[in-house]
C-alpha cells in the first residue's frame, strides 16, 4: 500500500521484525533527557512544550497505522477531535473533572469509534478509503459545529474544569503540571507503541504494508489485524486530543476536519514515516517553526510547508531522520 521506502535495516529507524533487537538504545533516551532539560531550562516555553508533546503522541498514533500498517488516512483528526470533545464535555458540562477519568473516557470513546469506523472502511482501498476517512472526520466536524448546546459550536467549549492530577498536582498558570502530565502520558504511549512495533503483531503489520495479498496467502487475518491497529491508533489519538483539551481547558472546532489531519501528516512526513522517532522530530520542528513564523508570515508559512512537503516527497522520502541516517551512513563509510 504505502510506497515510501522503509528505512534500511541497521539504521536508526525502528522497523521491528524477527531479527530486530528490541532493547532500548542509548539514543532513544535523548528525547526524554531533552524534555526534562527543557522543563528546567525553558520555563517560558512550557505551554508550547506541552503542545509539542501532545502532537508527538498524535503523530505516533498516525505512524502506527501509516508507517507500519500502510493505511493512508485524511481523517485521523476524527479520533483526536472526539477525544478532545469527550474530555471537554465531561469537564465543562458533566462535572467529571478528574483528568485521568477524562483521559480514560476519551480513550474509550476514540477506541470504540476506531473499531466501528475501521471495521466499516478498512474493506475499501485507495481513493474510496481516503474519501471515507475524510468524510468521517467531517461528520464529526459538522456535529461539533451544529450541536452548539453541547459543544459550543464555532465559539468552542470554554471553561473545561480539570481537577488536580491524582488529586495532588494542580494545573498551574505556567503550564508546569500540564507539561509534566503530558510528558508522562506520552512516555506511556511511546512505550506501548514501541512494544507493539517490535512484537509479532507489529511485524505482521509491516507484512500487510509490504504485501497484503501474500499475508492473506499465508493465512493471516489481515482485515482483523488492520481493524485492531486502527483501533489502537484511534485510542492513542483520542488520548492526545483529551490532553490538548485538558492543558488548554478549552476545545475548539480546529481539532476536527481536514486541516488538523493534513497538518499531522505533514509533521510525520517531515520527521520520517515508519520509524517511531520521526513522530518526535516532526512535531518538534514543525510546531517550533510555526510558533516563530506562522503568526508573522502566515502566507509564507503555508507556502513553506507546502513546498517542504513537495520537496520531501520528491527528494527526501525518509524525512529529516532519513537525511540524518544517510549522513551518518556516509560518515561511517567515507569511501563508499
Amino acid at each position: 500500500m504505502s510506497a515510501l521506502p522503509p528505512a534500511a535495516a541497521g539504521s536508526a529507524a525502528h522497523t521491528g521484525g524477527y531479527v530486530a533487537d528490541p532493547r532500548i538504545r542509548w539514543q532513544e533516551w535523548l528525547p526524554w533527557v531533552l524534555a526534562v532539560a527543557a522543563f528546567f531550562g525553558a520555563p517560558d516555553y512550557l505551554s508550547l512544550g506541552a503542545r509539542i508533546l501532545i502532537f508527538i503522541l498524535f503523530a505516533l498514533s498516525l505512524d502506527l497505522i501509516l508507517g507500519y500498517a500502510g493505511i493512508i488516512t485524511l481523517g485521523h483528526s476524527a479520533f483526536f477531535g472526539v477525544g478532545a470533545y469527550v474530555a471537554g464535555i465531561l469537564g465543562a458540562k458533566l462535572g467529571v473533572t478528574d483528568p485521568l477519568v477524562q483521559l480514560a473516557a476519551a480513550a474509550a470513546a476514540a477506541g470504540v469509534l476506531g473499531v466501528v469506523t475501521g471495521a466499516i472502511i478498512l474493506r475499501t482501498t485507495g481513493l474510496t478509503l481516503l474519501m471515507l476517512t475524510l468524510a468521517i472526520t467531517l461528520v464529526f466536524l459538522e456535529i461539533a459545529n451544529k450541536a452548539t448546546s453541547i459543544t459550543g459550536g464555532a465559539d468552542g467549549l470554554a471553561g473545561v474544569v480539570v481537577a488536580p492530577v491524582l488529586g495532588l498536582f494542580r494545573f498551574d498558570l505556567y503550564g508546569k503540571t500540564a507539561y509534566l502530565y503530558s510528558l508522562a502520558v506520552l512516555f506511556v504511549g511511546w512505550w506501548l507503541v514501541r512494544r507493539l512495533i517490535y512484537s509479532p503483531f507489529g511485524a505482521s503489520l509491516t507484512g500487510i504494508r509490504e504485501n497484503a495479498v501474500r499475508m492473506h496467502a499465508v493465512g493471516a487475518p489481515v482485515y482483523a489485524r488492520m481493524v485492531a491497529v486502527y483501533a489502537i491508533s484511534a485510542t492513542l489519538a483520542g488520548i492526545a486530543g483529551a490532553l490538548l483539551t485538558q492543558t488548554h481547558q478549552f476545545v475548539g472546532l480546529n481539532v476536527l476536519g481536514l486541516e488538523p489531519s493534513g497538518e499531522l501528516l505533514i509533521m510525520l512526513i517531515l520527521g520520517g514515516v515508519g520509524r517511531i522517532y520521526g513522530a518526535f522530530v516532526g512535531p518538534f520542528v514543525y510546531l517550533i517553526a510555526q510558533d516563530y513564523l506562522a503568526k508573522q508570515f502566515p502566507e509564507y508559512w503555508y507556502f513553506g510547508i507546502g513546498l517542504i512537503l513537495v520537496l520531501v516527497v520528491l527528494f527526501a522520502r525518509g524525512g529529516i531522520l532519513g537525511i540524518v541516517d544517510a549522513a551518518l551512513a556516509r560518515l561511517r563509510r567515507p569511501s563508499a
Binding site: V19, S199, P200, S204, T206, G207, A220
Partner: peptide, 29 residues
C-alpha cells in the same frame, strides 16, 4: 515482502501457522 529481510519473509508465515503472529507484547525476536 520485498523491503523486509529474508528471514522475516519466512518467519511471518511460520508465526501465522504457529498462531503466535498476533502477539502484541513479547518482542518478535
Amino acid at each position: 515482502f520485498r523491503q523486509l529481510p529474508v528471514i522475516d519473509n519466512v518467519a511471518l508465515a511460520i508465526a501465522e501457522r504457529d498462531g503466535v503472529a498476533g502477539g502484541m507484547f513479547r518482542p518478535a525476536s
